Simulated assay, not measured.
Amino acid sequence: MEFKDGSIIYPLPDDTLLSEKEGKWRIKLPEAYKEFIKKYNGGTPIKDSFKCNNHIYAIDRFLCILKVTGERDDEYYDIGVVRTQLDERIVFDENLVGTELLPIAVLFAGDFVCLDYRTNKEQPRVVVWNHEESGDLDPVTYDVSNSFSDFISMVE
């Protein structure tokens, strides 16, 4: 996968930061995703389209993983920051401890690609979260693929 020049956000996350985020979110990130984010943190892909639910979606950019300090403008694209902004719109149960939907990419027009941990905590599916159809504690998602690796192979 190729990315637009200057779109990758530095510093790239290392294993220590990824492990810290996994603990905070109470999930295990797929190995393929960890290898991807360690190379292409927050990047904007040149080939950016994929099909889902009889619709063609365009990836605006992948989200990044940073140590958030509040000192950088590009922290707006950090997964944790986006997750907090979406708050109850990506949560099914307000008493849930941990993460069920983890946004990993911003789509054109406000939807997100998410890792979906609802049915399998070890191997999350990839879904599109629809912002227009979703309400508080009632996120609407569409299945894209069974794994992050499969998702990446779909992007054209």
Score class of each variant (00 low, 15 high):
88 E>Q: 14
84 T>N: 13
111 D>M: 04
16 T>S: 12
127 V>N: 01
95 N>R: 14
29 L>Y: 03
101 L>V: 04
146 N>W: 03
122 E>M: 09
8 I>F: 03
156 E>V: 08
1 M>N: 12
19 S>M: 08
11 P>Y: 02
62 F>L: 13
112 F>E: 05
154 M>L: 15
28 K>M: 04
6 G>I: 02
152 I>K: 05
43 G>E: 02
103 P>R: 03
103 P>Y: 02
111 D>P: 11
2 E>C: 07
18 L>G: 07
85 Q>W: 14
132 E>Q: 14
111 D>Y: 12
100 E>W: 08
149 S>W: 06
145 S>R: 03
30 P>S: 10
30 P>I: 03
25 W>I: 00
86 L>K: 06
88 E>T: 15
73 D>P: 10
10 Y>I: 02
15 D>Q: 08
135 G>F: 10
146 N>R: 12
16 T>D: 13
19 S>I: 00
19 S>G: 13
153 S>Q: 09
63 L>C: 07
84 T>D: 11
114 C>R: 10
5 D>H: 07
42 G>P: 01
137 L>K: 06
82 V>G: 02
70 G>K: 09
74 D>G: 07
102 L>D: 07
46 I>L: 11
137 L>E: 04
131 H>K: 02
95 N>K: 15
59 I>L: 09
44 T>R: 15
13 P>Q: 03
133 E>S: 03
108 F>V: 14
156 E>Q: 15
106 V>E: 14
151 F>R: 02
131 H>N: 05
64 C>K: 08
27 I>T: 01
135 G>K: 13
64 C>N: 13
154 M>N: 07
57 Y>D: 04
110 G>N: 13
50 F>A: 09
132 E>N: 13
115 L>C: 10
81 V>A: 10
69 T>N: 11
142 Y>T: 00
50 F>P: 06
112 F>R: 11
134 S>W: 04
140 V>L: 07
118 R>H: 10
148 F>S: 10
77 Y>I: 08
107 L>R: 11
113 V>N: 12
65 I>A: 03
150 D>S: 14
37 I>A: 03
85 Q>Y: 15
41 N>C: 05
31 E>C: 00
127 V>C: 15
39 K>N: 01
101 L>D: 02
90 I>G: 04
95 N>I: 11
11 P>Q: 08
80 G>V: 04
21 K>R: 05
17 L>C: 10
48 D>V: 00
66 L>W: 08
99 T>D: 01
72 R>G: 06
5 D>N: 08
143 D>C: 02
113 V>K: 13
124 P>W: 06
37 I>E: 01
117 Y>S: 05
16 T>W: 09
85 Q>K: 15
105 A>Q: 13
113 V>Y: 11
39 K>W: 02
125 R>Q: 12
97 V>M: 08
130 N>M: 06
105 A>L: 07
44 T>P: 06
